[in-house]
């Protein structure tokens, strides 16, 4: 797979705050790559560095395996934080400036305005736009000229549910055409719904990365209890899918690697000579899982 963005050992410090620490990430063509982390985990800083807005203290990055970051940026469409446009200019005039900077001709402007539902308002000044429309213009500007890579930093922040749904649809639509997409988000749900790959950041450090289905795989846990808790904990550890357990007050919390059904578990323990007095399956929400990931590495 062709590497689109390669980040090597990136570090950035703002005064006493270590925003990004020794971060390495590889993003390949065609991936929908989520950068997931709570607020202040270094997502935006990382993107700002790769877009040449912020200088890193250490480390390097390269787009498309090339060194000329200015020319590479012309092949990338970005929606970073707030939409930044000239308020006294209309969407068309604003996009003309974007097209000129990116060395594109102006023929694509109408298409992206139609795609984002702004065509009717194409000649109204930007300053009269609502927040949702501003965000849509930012997306239109990113889509201009069908770039190879799209970057979204918190793309649905501050939008109403309808707007969120529209933007997610739009992202998936573009992704279906083979565009590589990078999304920074603090919403696990968003990453889960859209992304194929994910890197989880916390306090500027990468905790995990890989396929969403693997990193964010949910292994359910069980509460189990027996008359003889000692032999229960010994026996449960011999289960082929056993991952770990946590002794609680009157039960043991067991995690498994694979998919284990309550019936199977009961049967397995019974065959090993343990009779359960309590068995309860625990479904973890994604959020819970995500928070656990963060806590384990805090």
């Amino acid at each position: 797979m062709e590497t689109i963005l390669s980040i090597k050992q990136l570090s950035k410090r703002y005064g006493r705050i270590q925003a990004v620490k020794d971060l390495s990430v590889e993003i390949s063509r065609g991936q929908i790559f989520g950068i997931l982390g709570p607020n202040g985990s270094g997502k935006s800083t990382t993107l700002s560095i790769t877009l040449d807005m912020v200088r890193s203290d250490m480390g390097s990055y390269s787009w498309f395996g090339e060194n000329n970051s200015k020319e590479c940026r012309k092949r990338i469409g970005s929606v970073i934080e707030t939409p930044n446009f000239y308020p006294y200019l209309s969407p068309v005039r604003n996009l003309e400036i974007v097209a000129d900077v990116k060395d594109l001709d102006h023929s694509d402007i109408d298409r992206v305005l139609e795609l984002t539902g702004l065509y009717e308002r194409r000649n109204t000044k930007f300053k009269t736009f609502s927040f949702g429309m501003r965000q849509r213009l930012a997306i239109a500007s990113a889509l201009l000229g069908n770039p190879e890579v799209l970057i979204f930093d918190e793309p649905t922040n501050g939008l109403d549910p309808q707007g969120i749904a529209q933007i997610r649809e739009l992202i998936l639509l573009v992704a279906a055409q083979g565009t590589t997409i990078i999304i920074a988000s603090h919403l696990l749900d968003e990453v889960q719904k859209i992304c194929s790959h994910v890197a989880v950041l916390s306090k500027g450090v990468k905790l995990f990365d890989g396929k969403v289905s693997e990193v964010l795989a949910i292994s359910d846990s069980f509460e189990i209890a027996a008359a003889d808790m000692g032999s229960l904990s010994a026996v449960i550890a011999t289960h082929p899918e056993f991952a770990s357990f946590k002794p609680k007050e009157d039960y043991i919390l067991v995690y498994f690697n694979g998919d284990v059904k309550p019936g199977e578990l009961n049967q397995f323990l019974y065959q090993q000579g343990v009779v359960l007095t309590h068995l309860s399956e625990r479904k973890r929400s994604l959020e819970q899982h995500f928070l656990e990931l963060l806590n384990e590495n805090a």
Binding site: D52, I80, Y86
Partner: peptide, 20 residues
């Protein structure tokens, strides 16, 4: 204005170097 509107950031993001 370019700082107030943050359009200098946008210009750079879109592929202008700071020197340009």
């Amino acid at each position: 204005n370019e700082f107030t509107f943050k359009t200098i950031r946008q210009n750079v993001i879109n592929g202008m170097s700071k020197s340009e």
